[in-house]
């Protein structure tokens, strides 16, 4: 049985992710312990809320150094994904620099936050295996990751941006798979069965 951990660093509603995994029959451990994280088969890095306190909490726990060197599949969700990017416009600060993308604030042309179900266009790959084209997934965020070489799914709100990113063993979803109905469950299931 593979070991799944959810990184617990005080950033919001992480129980939802744990519950979503439970519905898939997976007991995931909430932890910020280095040994636990290093020895896991899969690591989920969630987060909602503000980037600045989240980054501070990662630094205090040494997770900002640990996460980028992980070798097993890692899935960042929402703020988790954004923190994995190189630069964040919120307070102009550096992220964990796993993805080379910049995270920007939505323009005032659109209603912010971007809340609700939006369709995504994805590149074929492990994360979206078995999912029909242009699925609807649930977003809630005020900042977005620009398009880049690591973009594996896009969506549009005002402009096109990254709905999902991937670089080697690192994956990120701007949307919330744990809140995206059966499609989201399939995406989580796909992540859990990625083999390397």
């Amino acid at each position: 049985m593979s070991k799944v951990v959810i990184i617990d660093y005080g950033a919001g509603n992480i129980q939802s992710v744990q519950f979503a995994l439970e519905r898939l029959g997976v007991q995931a451990k909430l932890t910020h312990n280095t040994e636990d994280i290093l020895s896991a088969d899969k690591v989920i890095f969630p987060g909602v809320g503000h980037a600045t306190p989240a980054l501070k909490s990662l630094q205090e726990k040494g997770l900002d150094k640990l996460i980028p060197i992980l070798k097993q599949p890692v899935l960042g969700i929402c703020l988790g994904m954004q923190l994995m990017c190189s630069f964040l416009e919120e307070n102009n600060q550096n992220g964990l620099d796993i993805f080379s993308t910049t995270v920007k604030k939505f323009s005032e042309e659109e209603k912010v936050p971007h809340i609700g179900w939006n369709d995504i266009k994805f590149k074929d790959g492990e994360l979206f295996r078995g999912i029909e084209e242009n699925p609807y997934v649930y977003f809630v965020h005020s900042y977005y990751a620009e398009l880049g070489v690591e973009t594996i799914a896009t969506t549009g709100y005002g402009q096109q941006f990254s709905a999902a990113l991937q670089k080697n063993n690192f994956y990120g979803c701007q949307f919330h798979p744990e809140k995206s109905g059966v499609i989201g469950e399939q995406i989580l299931k796909n992540f859990l069965t990625i083999t390397q």
Binding site: Q15, F19, R23, Y138, K179, S180
Partner: peptide, 8 residues
């Protein structure tokens, strides 16, 4: 509720 449902 959070344990059971998969929408926000």
């Amino acid at each position: 509720i959070a344990q059971k449902i998969n929408i926000p």
